[in-house]
Amino acid sequence: MKAELLLKERIAIIPGRSFAELVVWRVPTPVRESSHAFKYRLALVVDGACVLRYDNEAGKGDHRHVGEAEIAYRFTTPEALLADFWADVESWRES
């Protein structure tokens, strides 16, 4: 089995100012430090700067970046991952 792209999408949040980029892969073996078969990168970019990102970079495992902070993230399912990301985007929009 080789990696399978499940989602690749860029969504305007505030046209011309911010967007969300969502990329999720199903991988044949877990990324180092992760225990599931998904590789992902979900990012919120505002005025050219990434202000929120969920990813599971090899060697770091599942985590999210909120501003400058890096926080561990407990991955359960791709659906929950997307729901958590969009909840954080909504919190950013409300702040």
Rank of each mutant, 00 (worst) to 15 (best):
V23K: 13
D84W: 06
A43Q: 15
D88S: 08
L6E: 12
W25L: 08
C50S: 08
G16N: 11
R93Q: 13
L81T: 07
Y54Q: 09
P30L: 06
V31G: 06
R10T: 14
T29D: 08
T76G: 00
K60Y: 13
E68A: 15
D84K: 01
E68P: 10
F19D: 09
F19S: 14
T29V: 12
R41L: 08
L52E: 02
F75Y: 12
M1P: 09
G16W: 06
A69H: 06
I71P: 06
E94M: 04
G16K: 07
Y54T: 00
E68R: 15
A72M: 07
E90M: 10
I14W: 08
G48L: 05
R10H: 06
D84H: 13
I11W: 08
G61H: 08
A12K: 15
A87N: 07
K60C: 07
V45M: 06
S18L: 12
V66L: 15
A3L: 01
F19I: 00
K8T: 02
N56E: 12
V89H: 01
W25F: 15
A12S: 15
E57S: 09
H65R: 08
V46Y: 03
V31K: 05
D55I: 04
V31D: 06
D84C: 01
D55W: 09
R93G: 05
W25Q: 05
T29E: 15
K8F: 11
W92I: 11
A3I: 01
R10V: 14
V46T: 05
L81C: 06
A87V: 02
V24M: 13
I71N: 05
I13Q: 09
I11L: 14
P28M: 03
R64T: 00
A49D: 09
P28F: 02
S34E: 09
E4Y: 00
E33M: 15
A3F: 00
G67R: 10
H36M: 04
S18V: 04
F38W: 12
V23Y: 07
E90F: 08
A87K: 11
G16Y: 08
P15C: 06
A20F: 04
S95M: 06
T29R: 14
R93E: 11
V31C: 02
E21W: 07
E68L: 14
D62F: 05
L44G: 03
R10A: 12
D84P: 02
H63L: 08
A69D: 14
